[in-house]
């Protein structure tokens, strides 16, 4: 086994899909650029040709719509949005069209498009280059939302997303790109079989994350472990449709729930996780109130001073747990 980075894992998923599925093609801005999407798309245009790897005009709306339309016609397109913020131009094609195409026509047609949307935060990029809007999309019935946090999932869930007969938004966070792991051989897994996964076992508190938040939770929990705190860490992986069953079992065991989310607090994914657990457990199960660590409810600031306060990190999570809980 060869150690692989998260970004190389994405690249290897593209390579696998393009090699094995002639109906797969990729479009989006920056695909012929050597720097636009990290090295996650590197040289794909040279290997598979500019017919299948299409760098597009600055038209998020039309190009996303085109990917949706091509998917209705038997192709498996992947539309890449190097920053989620710009994808908002394409909301009609995603929310009104792709998400509803199967339902509106009684299942006669479907739109198996994959929308790769990249979260690209920090670096003083400010309010319009740093958003994590996964919770928005998780609100919409008909669109699956996938957030890989591990290197293995970065590769495997991209493959599952593209092979899924439903529209999928696959969200990767550039802060995860340097993670490394030894990957198992590729085994195609139906996206339906992908549920929240326990990454670390413990019996005192259940910490739930998605994407980069899972990494934070995992790192914080490892450090807490040396202080004697036994945290169980769950990675959501697929946030819509959301299956809470594994987490529910965990909370019944640990009796404490903390959710870490890279989005805002109000109406966010953390609220959804907490609600779906609380409404399904007996009253008085929890020793402590369910809690969440999210972004503060303000746009991403540009100043590095503000940024330090804005984003959750390992130290903040450890401090929060030490301050809020008595095990």
């Amino acid at each position: 086994m060869i150690s692989t980075t998260y970004s190389d894992a994405i690249l290897s998923a593209f390579d696998y899909l393009l090699k094995n599925y002639p109906e797969v093609f990729v479009l989006g801005q920056g695909l012929w650029s050597p720097w636009y999407v990290g090295n996650t798309m590197k040289n794909l245009d040279k290997k598979y040709g500019k017919d299948r790897i299409i760098d597009t005009p600055v038209s998020e709306s039309a190009c996303t719509g085109a990917a949706v339309g091509a998917s209705i016609c038997g192709m498996k397109p992947i539309i890449v949005h190097p920053r989620m913020d710009f994808m908002l131009y394409a909301m009609d094609s995603i929310v009104n069209q792709a998400a509803k195409w199967s339902y509106m026509f009684g299942g006669q047609l479907n739109a198996p498009v994959t929308i790769r949307s990249i979260i690209n935060r920090g670096g003083s990029q400010g309010a319009q280059h740093s958003q994590a809007l996964h919770s928005w999309f998780a609100h919409i019935p008909g669109i699956r939302v996938v957030m890989p946090s591990t290197v293995q999932d970065a590769r495997d869930l991209l493959i599952s997303s593209v092979l899924c007969p439903d529209p999928v938004i696959y969200i990767d966070d550039r802060w995860l790109y340097e993670q490394t792991a030894d990957l198992k051989p590729i085994k195609e897994t139906p996206l339906n079989d992908v549920t929240p996964k326990c990454l670390k076992e413990g019996d005192q508190i259940t910490i739930v994350g998605s994407g980069y938040s899972t990494l934070l939770a995992l790192n914080a929990s490892k450090k807490l472990h040396s202080d004697g705190v036994r945290a169980e860490v769950f990675d959501l992986r697929v946030i819509n449709p959301f299956n809470s069953i594994n987490i529910l079992d965990s909370v019944l065991k640990t009796k404490r729930l903390l959710v870490i989310d890279s989005g805002w607090k109000s109406c966010g994914m953390a609220s959804e996780v907490i609600t779906s657990i609380v409404e399904n457990i007996p009253t008085n199960t929890l020793i402590d109130p369910p809690r969440r660590i999210t972004l503060p409810d303000c746009p991403a600031p540009s100043s590095e001073v503000h940024e330090k306060d804005y984003y959750p990190n390992e130290e903040k999570i450890i401090k929060f747990i030490n301050d809020e809980y008595y095990f």
Partner: peptide, 11 residues
Amino acid sequence: GTVPLAVGAGL
């Protein structure tokens, strides 16, 4: 709504 979808169908 369907105009870009039709473009994709042509693509």
